[in-house]
Design a protein around this nucleic acid. Structure first.
Lengths: 178, 178
DNA sequence: GCCGTTTCTTGAACACTGTTATAGTGGCCC
DNA sequence: GGGCCACTATAACAGTGTTCAAGAAACGGC
């Protein structure tokens, strides 16, 4: 707050008078950003492609605005920020012919999985020191059932985008197969 | 720190002298807990079941100890806490015949998805006020492409355990199918 | 032009974090 | 008893978000 005020050349209390507490500032910021996100286009000519596209939009949009996304996540405004994209995804699931319950379960399942990927991708670099990372810890794993070559491979971080695509494909295939 | 010290009937500085800073206290706590978690049994008679079991262990163990899991997550010690269960999961993937790269990708894909579910399931109740929840926000969604009945269904939270099982099945099927 | 009210701005302060510097207190060995 | 060591506690520092009370500025009525 003080830092933000200093950057604006005003006093912290002025922000409190005009906008409100930290929470209100964040809320206003998220509100603005959310409106800008509403127009991510869904592409594809069949349900599979279109659902995948809508899901990918959540992922790429978040990656394109890491700071806002982090801030929203840390303050509990993720849902507000993502809502337009959630709606977009829900539309495609409905269009694919899913009934209400399956639509909800598909929507939530996809969103939760995306959330997991985003948590990994967007964590502030200083939140987890390098030596507490899973990849780092695997370096000293010595298990007879796990070949050294596999162990070393696990030490290297995966290609997040590729992994995301594959994971989504698996999920969506399963959802639309029924 | 002060609160913990008061609970123990000592002064905060005493903790600093004996254990160290907050980070050291958390690290010691996680270390202890991690040892207890190492012996979650993997069940099943075929790769599919055994991988699913190892993945489920991560999920159920975290749900069984929400406070430690949250603390570990917030302080960047998640990997340290979960490592035994990650190893257990990797063992099953190797046993299923996956090569090093596929093992890594499968491991990470599964873990990231579980992470997303855990974030949703374990968030401290006060972190996200009820009116910022996705389910709450969907209550006021009015989209011509989404039937009211579907909209209302999305308003209700899904069965997390069931959704977890289905999501894992889809992922594991896809991983082992190649 | 002056006065009074409302609108705005501000420095100081509060409560709360994690952390540390300083000043001790107690016990042990020689 | 003297000197050293292990340990404890009080007070303070720096950093959050937030509020209070006191002013400065703008505005309107006479």
């Amino acid at each position: 707050m003080r830092k933000l005020a200093a950057e604006l050349g005003i006093s912290a209390t002025t922000i409190y008078w005009h906008v409100g507490g930290r929470d209100d500032v964040v809320a206003a910021l998220i509100e603005r950003q959310s409106e800008r996100l509403s127009d991510a286009a869904v592409t594809g000519t069949n349900p599979r492609e279109r659902v995948a596209s809508a899901a990918r939009n959540v992922w790429t949009t978040a990656l394109a605005h890491p700071n806002v996304t982090r801030l929203a996540y840390e303050t509990g405004y993720s849902a507000k920020l993502e809502l337009p994209l959630e709606i977009s995804l829900a539309r495609e699931l409905v269009a694919a012919g899913l009934d209400p319950t399956r639509t909800r379960d598909a929507l939530r399942g996809i969103l939760y999985s995306i959330g997991g990927f985003l948590v990994m991708a967007l964590r502030p670099p200083d939140a987890v020191p390098a030596d507490r990372t899973s990849t780092a810890l695997w370096g000293s794993v010595d298990d007879p059932a796990i070949p050294a070559r596999t162990r070393d491979r696990i030490t290297e971080p995966p290609d997040l985008d590729q992994l995301f695509e594959r994971t989504m494909s698996a999920l969506i295939d399963s959802i639309l197969a029924r």
